[in-house]
Design a protein around this nucleic acid. Sequence first.
DNA 1: GATGAATGAGGCTTCATTCAT
DNA 2: CATGAATGAAGCCTCATTCAT
Lengths: 212, 212, 212, 212
Amino acid sequence: MARPSTNIDAGRAQLLDVVEHLIRKRGGGPVTLTELAAEAGMSTANIYRFFASKEALFEAVAERWFEPKIRIMEQVVSSNLSAREKLYEFFARRFLLKRDGYLAEPELFVSYLDLGDQHEDIVRGFIDLGDHYLAMIVSQAMDEGYFAGLTIDRTVSLINLMLVPFIDPRHIITLMHSVSEEKLHQIVDAMLLGLREPGLATPHLRLAAAAE
Amino acid sequence: MARPSTNIDAGRAQLLDVVEHLIRKRGGGPVTLTELAAEAGMSTANIYRFFASKEALFEAVAERWFEPKIRIMEQVVSSNLSAREKLYEFFARRFLLKRDGYLAEPELFVSYLDLGDQHEDIVRGFIDLGDHYLAMIVSQAMDEGYFAGLTIDRTVSLINLMLVPFIDPRHIITLMHSVSEEKLHQIVDAMLLGLREPGLATPHLRLAAAAE
Amino acid sequence: MARPSTNIDAGRAQLLDVVEHLIRKRGGGPVTLTELAAEAGMSTANIYRFFASKEALFEAVAERWFEPKIRIMEQVVSSNLSAREKLYEFFARRFLLKRDGYLAEPELFVSYLDLGDQHEDIVRGFIDLGDHYLAMIVSQAMDEGYFAGLTIDRTVSLINLMLVPFIDPRHIITLMHSVSEEKLHQIVDAMLLGLREPGLATPHLRLAAAAE
Amino acid sequence: MARPSTNIDAGRAQLLDVVEHLIRKRGGGPVTLTELAAEAGMSTANIYRFFASKEALFEAVAERWFEPKIRIMEQVVSSNLSAREKLYEFFARRFLLKRDGYLAEPELFVSYLDLGDQHEDIVRGFIDLGDHYLAMIVSQAMDEGYFAGLTIDRTVSLINLMLVPFIDPRHIITLMHSVSEEKLHQIVDAMLLGLREPGLATPHLRLAAAAE
DNA sequence: GATGAATGAGGCTTCATTCAT
DNA sequence: CATGAATGAAGCCTCATTCAT
């Protein structure tokens, strides 16, 4: 019986659709409220019935983008799998999700990335959230004996570094053909076995010198 | 009475230096003419003596960025090499140029990329130019018997797709360690030997299905 | 079919209550229709059933504030008292009314004053009305021989000036302890006896010169 | 030789004049940049050459208003007078300044007060500055044996309370006739002699009850 | 050749007001 | 009778651009 605020949510969703339609049709440049209002067939003032600010609107856009990834992370973290399996699933599932998203609508995918570049602050929150979940898995892994001598934070940072090609959507396009589940498995295992407090000095930049 | 346009060119170059200095020192955000004028020690109005518009200025910035790449492409295309050798040189030389540029000044490199994101239209022109040169090489390759059954455009597109890791500067950072001249050689050969009209249906997305 | 306007008046009164409740609870800032509607549990649009405009609403607020003062003035003016008695009652009764209002709810009192500041045009009308009544008393006083050589307007102005501490609510707070009915009596008598065309030059600003 | 920023200061001053002219001619309502620009014969954008924001502009307006008062306070505080003399001068000089300002242009004076009401935050800073100077005098007075048992802050607060009629411009209008240098002298002396830690319970509100 | 001055268009946001239902 | 929906005007601010000097 109680319909709290009519169809405000529907309007919100529709506006997000319009944003999507907009960047789908004209690429990644900054989205203006004027432009959005025109495309949505409403006044700029009316947009404020649905979103408290431009910032809030693009938070919602980001949320729409990140929501399925977050659901995956939650599922994986709260599952009964071993740390090794969780680690694998944690990255594999999201990688496949992004890759398929790109395959379905390459240009839209890229435009979303551009949008993310323009709202780094908003994006950062979601990235931190991902690190938070990863830290929970790392913690479990430590309980199981992995990552000896490393802090959680440092481990999280190293893992992110090694798996950039599976995480960064900018690289999804490139790596679609060279990345496979087997490789991810291998890398995850390598991390679990090999990531620990370093015992010897690191050889540095030899490759770069050779390439000159 | 004096040579009028000679100093214009000098001023232009100096302004481009200032732009570089600016993004080197404060990262990738949008560059304002006010900001640029202040850094250059001149009035915003005076900038218009050197560039007809902000757009023109950033065209020049892009030109400065792309100029060495263009020279490479011209040299390669107009050389006496075989299509196979041209194809290799075409990508290898530019890849090394970018990689070294990144290694020399990583932050400046990234800031330039950000700038490129903000002026996609300008960038697109240079990309098209690259495709134009590539098409000339592909044409020669076809004369030499490669790419049977494919159109020039389609071949150019496929090649670009396969070589993204060697082209897209966004990937240079990530892929520096996993990319080598040998690999490029291999890929080029694989393209020449393998790229032709497809004869059988492509198996697709099996991974995605499994991941669900 | 039913009595239409009866409930309108009730709604009007209720809205004025809500305005009062609002400024009572959050002080004197500008009152927004959105805010008022929320507090009243109705839509902003519905407010227009009761008041033709925001202006009209605040006229009503002012009227509620001024109404008891007006009644007092009417009673005094239409009474059978002498000019001297009228003059005293005219100011004394209203002063006590305001002072007690302030003592009862100091913050509400102050908030109303703030509201008045934001709607000077509305307030001015009521002030003019007060001057009108005062002029009637002055006229009677002149008939009784007072204020020789002065015009009505000038007399009204002078009286207002001398009695500011008894009139201006802004001063009520400060002067509560130093003002008394006896003093008002004295001042009224002084005015009646002393206010007449000046016969000698006014000594002026000697203090200011000394202070320099 | 170095003329730092042309006539930005002149423009600033002129704009403040325009603000003054504006409130002189149409009273105290909020001053809009559009309105100000129109009156000044320039575009709103151009105002920003002189003031970084609307806030900054009204800070300057306030500064213009407070500047002579501040100079007086500085002079008094840094003089060689006794605490008693300083205390008297501190309030007397500023009171005379305000009173004369009101006498010279009553409506302008009032409009400035309205403006102050609309920018309370800006005004508060200057009021705090006044308290700071007063605290220095109080400190000296304590060295001379006054205000036994009281803290500086509490003394400052009490003094401000007792001298409201000499400080608050809202009361200047009223009190012009009832306030004199002698009275101020008396009050100052009374404060110096009488203000100390209270020894007996305070009788409360008897007056208010009597007035009922 | 170079500058300070000035502008207009456009961006985000708030709010009183209207209207179909 | 009342509402949600929608708007337009106005406010502050930024910035590329122009122009007289």
